[in-house]
Structures are given as structure tokens and as C-alpha cells.
Computed example of a mutant assay.
Amino acid sequence: MYDPVRLAALVAVAEAGSITRAAERLGYTPPALSQQLAKLEREAGTALLVRHHRGARLTGAGELLVARARRVLDELDRARHELARLTGLAGGTLRLGTFQTAGIQLLPPVLSTFRRTYPDVELSVAFHEPTAGITAVAAGEIDLALTHAYEPGEPPSLPATLSSEPLLTEELVLVTAPGHALAGGSTRLPLAELAGEPLISMAPDHPARREVEAVLARSGATPSVLVATPGYALVCALASAGLGVGVVPEMVARTAATPVGTRLLEAGALRRTISVVHRTGEAAPAADAFRALLRGAFGRARPV
């Protein structure tokens, strides 16, 4: 039996025309989406896609399966909607808090699925930096908040009334000006090779980054420009202009508005984990349903 998640992945590639664009739409990394598609091809026993330099196109078998998959997914959506009415999700409100990267890159496909499944639930979304999002959930101002924590570093403390569920772990990567010598290698960059490099810093005004930048400082990177207001878009823009190098989450580097060179750092050195925070011990059908969709979307796509 075909996995509906993999069928949805194939449909997304058919509509987007490339694995990279489909991955962005679904909130996956391209390698994670490719893995799902490879499993689907093994289940089908035949090639479903032909990769080429501009993207990917369906084979004859892929076109046949996409046509059937759309019908299956439509039926599942209808079933979810009917079940929602039975379980009390035919109305009400779901209030979400998110930091900017997650709000732009991760939430839209999940919100789209939630809206199709529970069209009568009113949705609201507000931007909150992680600590502010936790406070807002604890105060009852929002129902769920997407937060993040860095490794190395201490996770944000939670009141006893809240719980946190990890969704996605991504590496931090080096960003530089295009053509920079450090971005040219195909292997992972040892942190020791950052010695003497001017670093675009987000500490000390970004407490969650302090331990990360302490590691970079011990490796010999020298603070060059301080971005006092946390904003990865600005870090990437300054790196692109040659004012220094930066270390940012992989999804930020992949979607930077300015051209940057990138390089993976030594394995396991620096990471960011994205989690969803919710209140415990209360009936919250809409919040529970949304958390389940988050788990389904991102639990399969954790880059290591």
C-alpha cells in the first residue's frame, strides 16, 4: 500500500516541476524529499521521475500514479473534514505564534492542509521571538508557538503548565560572499579553518546564539560586524557584500534573498532544533490536530 505522504510528495513535484521547489512548498529539505520519492519508486517497482538540470519530470508511470494519487488525497481530505465535524472541529479558533523563518518556510504548507481539513476553524498567526512565544502560550494569548533552541546552548525554560515537542533539527552552515575561498570546498569545513575570519555576529543581543558564537570565537573567528537586532536576512546580506562570514541555519542559507556561498561545517558541530510549545492538561482539539499535522510534515524530514 502506498504511503499518502509519499503520494503527496510526488504530486507536489509534478506541480512544482522540481524537487527543490516542491521541498520548499512542503517544508522538507530536498534530500529528505528525495528519500521519500525513492521509497515510493521502490514501492511502485519502476521509475516515476526523470531528473534533469532544470528540475524533474514525470515518467509515464509517474503520470499514471499522480492522477490516481490526486483522487486518493482528495478522498482523504474529505474524510478528515467529515471526522472533524464528528470530533468537534467544525468551528472555533486556533491562534499560532511563530518566529519569522518558520513562519515563512515551514508553516504555510501545514496551514494549507489544516485549512483544507478543518475549514470552519478560524486561524490567526502572529510573529513572536521564541521566548516571547513561550510567554504568550503560558498567558493564554495564543494556543501554540513555534520556538527554537541552538546546540550548543541551553534550551529555553518552560513553565510547568507547558510542554515542548521537537519537530525538526537542522545544521548551521557557513555563508560567505559568492566565490569566497571557504565556500569552494566540497567537504565539511573544520571549525579551526575559521581562525582569523571576520564574523558577522548576532551576540550578545541574541541570547540563544551566545554559546554558538562562543564556539566560533574559540575557533579563532573574530567579530567584525554586530547585528544587534536578530535578523538572518541581514546577516546573509552583509556576508554577500563581503563584510564577513556568517553562520546561519541551513534553511535560511538555502532561501537567502542575496547571493551567498555556503559550506557545511564539521558534522554535529552546530545545530538548531525547532519545536512546538503547547499548554498541557486542557482540552484543545484544534491545537492537538495542528500538532499532529506538524509531526507528520516535519518528523520525517529531520536533517542530521
Rank of each mutant, 00 (worst) to 15 (best):
R302C: 13
T176I: 07
R218H: 02
G62V: 06
T280G: 04
T59N: 14
A233M: 04
A183Y: 10
T87N: 12
G220M: 10
S112P: 02
A195H: 13
V235T: 11
A9N: 08
L111V: 10
V175L: 06
V137M: 00
D205V: 07
G88T: 08
V212I: 04
G261R: 10
A267Q: 12
S124Q: 06
Y2E: 15
A286G: 03
R70K: 14
F114E: 06
E141M: 05
A47C: 10
H278C: 01
A283L: 10
L234V: 15
G92N: 04
A287H: 09
A241S: 12
G299Y: 09
R21S: 11
V5R: 13
A132M: 01
P190G: 02
Y150T: 14
G299K: 01
G60A: 15
F99R: 08
L83D: 12
A292K: 02
P178S: 05
L106D: 05
V215F: 01
R254Y: 05
M1I: 08
M1C: 12
T280V: 13
Y118P: 06
L107Q: 04
T131W: 00
R54L: 08
A44N: 14
A297T: 05
L167P: 00
H206K: 07
L293C: 03
A160M: 01
R57I: 14
L106V: 01
R271S: 09
A241D: 09
T46D: 13
A44V: 12
A14I: 02
A47M: 14
L76I: 13
T255A: 12
E43H: 03
I134K: 00
R42W: 08
L10F: 13
G55R: 06
A289H: 06
V121T: 08
G281C: 00
R302G: 15
L146W: 00
A126Q: 12
T255P: 05
M251A: 13
L144T: 02
A149H: 03
H52D: 10
T20I: 06
A217G: 14
A287R: 04
R302I: 11
R51K: 14
V72E: 15
G281E: 00
T187S: 14
I19N: 12
P4T: 11
E266L: 04
V173R: 01
I274L: 07
L83E: 12
P31W: 00
A208V: 04
P249M: 01
V125K: 07
V110I: 09
P285T: 02
G45V: 05
V277C: 00
A102K: 07
S219F: 04
H52I: 10
D143I: 04
P166N: 10
P109F: 03
A149V: 04
R263S: 11
L226H: 15
R70C: 02
R42E: 05
V50M: 09
E197G: 06
M202H: 00
L294I: 03
G244P: 12
V13P: 09
A181V: 15
V72K: 11
H180S: 11
T135Q: 15
L172F: 02
A149I: 01
S164R: 07
P119Q: 08
T29L: 06
F127I: 10
A14K: 00
G92A: 03
V13A: 08
P4C: 10
V125D: 03
T280N: 09
I104M: 11
A192R: 14
A195T: 15
D77N: 13
R209G: 03
V227I: 13
A102F: 02
H148G: 07
A203Q: 07
T87E: 13
P159A: 02
R51W: 08
T131E: 05
